[in-house]
Simulated assay, not measured.
Amino acid sequence: MTGPYARLAELGHELPEVVPPVASYLPAVQSGQHVYISGQLPMAEGKLLATGKVGADVSADQAKELAQQCALNALAVINSLVGLENVVRIVKLTGFVASAPGFTGQPGVINGASDFFGAVFGEAGRHARSAVGVAELPLGAPVEVEVIVEVTA
């Protein structure tokens, strides 16, 4: 078995339901051969998995796992719009980390999402990236991830 669905299964994951938007936006928009995925929070089964600031309330290791959940939620959105089999490459990932004062480990936290995309898509999962520390995120989430994906025409 090969392909992103098989790799997800090998990694022990199933695609979740798409998390409904928490405000006035779409989960994703396709424009030409690119899909722009709105910011994904670490939600599972309709609930935020953690709240608080990374480096105070949430450890960097826990935040890294939460970033992976954000990436998994992004895959659910991609799958619902175009199907994972149509992903050519993950182009850009922007990760936001609600950071306690003095916390500078944002890149390591967002590696949770980056490494997950690499595990699912191989070389096509490697991407450009920004990892940004912020004061607050929606609903008090510690991490948020947005993604741009190239898909087949």
Rank of each mutant, 00 (worst) to 15 (best):
Y25P: 05
L72Q: 02
A28P: 04
E65A: 13
E65L: 12
A113P: 02
V35K: 00
R7A: 10
H13Q: 11
R129W: 14
G52S: 07
G105Y: 06
V97C: 03
S80W: 07
A76N: 07
S99E: 05
E136P: 04
V147E: 00
V58I: 14
A74R: 01
S99Q: 08
S24L: 15
P20N: 10
A9G: 09
I78E: 01
E150I: 01
F121D: 02
V18Q: 06
E14V: 13
V22H: 15
A113N: 04
N86R: 15
T94S: 11
T51G: 10
D115W: 07
A113C: 11
L15K: 09
P42L: 10
A28Y: 00
V97H: 00
E146P: 08
V145K: 00
V82M: 09
T2E: 13
V19E: 12
G52T: 07
G39C: 06
L11C: 08
L139D: 13
H13C: 09
E146W: 01
G118R: 08
S59Q: 05
G39A: 14
M1W: 14
S38E: 04
R129I: 10
E150N: 05
G118V: 06
I148N: 01
S80R: 14
V151S: 00
Y5T: 09
L26A: 09
A113E: 03
V147Q: 01
E10Y: 12
I148P: 01
L139G: 07
D57T: 11
G32I: 04
V147M: 02
V87H: 03
K64D: 03
Q62L: 15
E45C: 11
E144Q: 15
S114E: 13
N79K: 11
V97K: 01
A74N: 03
A141G: 07
L49I: 11
K47D: 14
G105I: 08
V149K: 01
E14F: 11
R129Y: 15
S24Y: 12
A141W: 03
F117Q: 03
P27I: 00
P107F: 14
P16D: 11
I90L: 09
G105P: 02
L93C: 08
S59Y: 09
L66E: 02
D115Q: 14
E146V: 07
G133S: 09
L41M: 12
A71S: 07
C70T: 08
A124E: 10
G102P: 05
N86Y: 08
G112Y: 02
T104S: 15
A113T: 04
D61V: 14
A141N: 05
A28K: 00
V22P: 06
A50V: 08
L15M: 11
V82L: 13
G32S: 06
L75H: 02
A28H: 00
E136G: 08
Q33F: 08
A100D: 04
H127G: 06
A119V: 06
D61K: 14
Q33P: 10
V134E: 08
G105E: 10
G12D: 09
G118Q: 13
